[in-house]
Amino acid sequence: MITFTGVTKRYGDKVAVDNLDLTIRSGEAVMLVGPSGCGKTTTLKMINRLIEPTGGVIAIDGVDTATRDVTELRRSIGYVIQQVGLFPHLTVSDNVATVMKLVGWDRTRIRARVTELLELVGLPPAEFSHRLPGELSGGQQQRVGVARALAIDPLMLLMDEPFGAIDPITRDRLQDELLRLQRVVRKTIVFVTHDIDEAIKLGDRIALFSQNGRLAQFSTPAELLARPASKYVEEFLGGGRMVRRLSLVKLRDVPLANGDNGTADEVVPVDATLRDALDAVLRSRTGRVQVRDDEKVVGTVDADTIRRASQ
């Protein structure tokens, strides 16, 4: 758990982060989103003390980070940045092994862990471990970056626009893989992005910053889209909010119409999203769709059910 209490960062007269209170729970992925200069990157870098706050307290699991040894603190937190920052003179293996060597692991343990990590991020070790970063594509480099950050199995991962410099198709794939990875490793992830769609896709919760370094809203993606706290949040989210929200909500989590009066002519599983359900409703001739949990009918859904679930 990471807690920000009244954290402020000032550069001269300019306020980068203004009296921030924020609690990030263990194992959740929190997206810090906002326009350039809103303080989201500053907030991230204050966690591993690459930037020291001007005021306030940042605590990890109740321990004020300012009281911890900075080197030890940083080694306990994985760090991934947009420029990737792989060491160009070291092989993929050696890059991934950097922190393991710093903390003094023995060679067999390092070799085993490097192999495990490269497999985890989808780079077959036999093919990649002896390559140099310059021989990899941007997407492959960032996979190595993620593997390096996970090296000694930190509880936390800080990611500073990790996919910002990667082409849209590869970015989409890396996002999917991060979601898959997160299901396996369950880290506390703090992720900076200016792309609200990326945040909606990857985040358990989103902290949306406004221009002046203040927190405009902090909630789940579905909540954010359904109930923007201000005009600013609404504008930042852009158009089609309710439609975009549909793919975030599962049928399981909304009240369904009871039973089936026999008019339903399509079927969706209860694990489907509202988006899938709406698709089925639009396909159906009667406008009513049966919802099933395995073989059991648990209810029906129609346009009105979806509308009510969106409000």
Partner: peptide, 18 residues
């Protein structure tokens, strides 16, 4: 030397000498 590389090194907990 690329600032990105130096920042990554710092963020990983390498000391200035390392």
């Amino acid at each position: 030397v690329d600032p990105g590389i130096q920042e990554a090194a710092r963020g990983m907990g390498m000391t200035p000498m390392q």
